[in-house]
Design a protein around this nucleic acid. Structure first.
Lengths: 277, 277
DNA sequence: AATCATGCGAACATTATCGCACATTATCTC
DNA sequence: GAGATAATGTGCGATAATGTTCGCATGATT
């Protein structure tokens, strides 16, 4: 189709890595067809990248060495405590059933949750409402799935979330089973806070239309603080965090929220998913 | 673009860097055609810039030094017929004034237009309403100083556009000076068509809120056809295409539309023209 | 286990790109 | 304007990237 265009080799290799990050694995035949180059060229590209240790060669293609080593859609920040976010995401998936209509907010934690969700079987036939551009693009990248995505619209923020009156109005006209939100900080006993008051308002709008609210947040958020409160503890059904949370905060939080889930810590078994690919 | 005007080296080098920022990589052959200078000159420019550490030379062109870190905007499809789309985009920029509120639709042609617009000075203080996720991300990625972006929301399509009743409703609540739309096919004398009727409806919604409608489309669209009509010729103010359009279609189209602009494109046939001239 | 399909990689063919040396053209200076 | 100087274009052999062929290995299927 686009045979007349040739990409620079580094562009190809970059795209391969990009695919690897979103899909975890790539096939040589598929890449060859998609990029309009011969399979041999793809092999050579993959060999180069393997020499640099950026991926792992397997029969028929390549898999990523460390799944989430580099995250294209987010800054370096998301590389920290990635194991924690993975663990949290894995637990959160249990709260989704096939056919559900869910909402997913902005931020890296919610994004990692979306990644795990879409790789699992629970994503079958679900509908996702989101104000996060990365989440929307993620679903688009995995076109095979039976997932519908609705984007809220609104003004775009530095963190690639959509906020403002347009977003709030769109959200208000819809309804979802469960909303999954990240948070910038947790304040005991006040609740959950965001640095941006517009984002806080959009999160509130999402909670208003949801039967159930689930907060996804790693334990470091307990020690930071922010400007705008978007949810009190009694408005939240479940808080999912990791077991790095100190016992004192854990007990205090458990008294305030209906359910507190502690996902098991820093794990390196992220390669499980890749082995099957 | 302005092939008959010779740019001085610093202008060329500035443009190369600018391309690099938006696309992540440039190809010497493409730049040579686009700028109307020999490949050797481009090589010397790139060598200069590489000496200053402003880019990295690779076989066939150059890549941005920061391309290793982030390049989510690039897609293979957007490189097709780039010369034509670039020429069209450059002409279209003239229809934007600082401070304008404009709407930009989906598709690669509109995306390339957005790229050029944001590189130019005309983007100062403008507000962009778009239903294209790539366009929205583009503005975000460039950290364009003085540009506000509003995303329509809606259901996401294969082509990363947002459509459906939500998009239409959001659009209907706003108002813009000018709307820039791509099209899948041009039918003389019927009008402009899209393969997806939801996208057609969203394009119509954008036209409804705009004082002026401008269609951006390369000449190949005259020879294809689609399902859903979204605009008749008399509803459109300006059609911008490239001079690869055959004279017969050009005259017929000129009779139907208020203004037809033929941008001087650079494609395969351009070599023939240069050789004979 | 036998068969078939697919993927692999080495060797070679092909094409595109590179960069030198030099010709040409533009630009500047007086 | 004439000459000097810098910038750009051109031809060509060398080089790198990519494509192709084919024998062999691997994985899947029955």
């Amino acid at each position: 189709m686009c045979d007349n265009v040739r990409m620079i080799s580094s562009q190809r290799q970059h795209l391969i890595l990009s695919r690897l990050r979103t899909r975890g694995a790539v096939r040589i035949t598929a890449l060859s067809k998609e990029l309009g180059v011969s399979a041999m060229t793809i092999r050579r590209d993959i060999a180069d990248l393997a020499d640099k240790g950026l991926l792992k060669r397997v029969h028929g293609g390549a898999v990523s060495t460390s799944t989430l080593l580099s995250e294209p859609l987010f800054s370096v920040k998301s590389q920290m405590e990635l194991g924690l976010k993975d663990a949290i995401a894995q637990r959160a998936i249990e709260y989704v059933s096939p056919g559900d209509v869910i909402a997913i907010g902005g931020g890296t934690t919610a994004y990692v949750f979306a990644q795990h969700l879409l790789e699992s079987q629970r994503a079958n036939g679900i509908t996702i409402l989101t104000n996060s551009i990365p989440v929307a693009e993620l679903v688009q990248a995995l076109e095979s799935k039976d997932v519908e995505v609705i984007v809220t619209g609104g003004v775009i923020t530095r963190s690639n979330s959509l906020v403002g009156p347009i977003a709030d109005k769109v959200i208000a006209s819809l309804r979802v089973n469960t909303v999954f939100l990240g948070t910038h900080s947790v304040s005991v006993p006040r609740g959950f806070l965001m640095p941006n008051s517009l984002e806080a308002a959009t999160d509130m709008a999402m909670m208003d239309i949801a039967d159930r609210t689930i907060i996804l947040t790693d334990h470091t958020k307990w020690s930071s603080t922010s400007l705008s409160l978007f949810a009190r503890f009694d408005q939240v059904d479940t808080v999912i965090t990791d077991d790095g949370l100190d016992p004192d905060s854990a007990t205090k939080t458990r008294d305030l929220v209906k359910e507190l889930v502690l996902a098991h810590g820093v794990d390196e078994e992220a390669d499980d998913r890749l082995a099957t690919a």
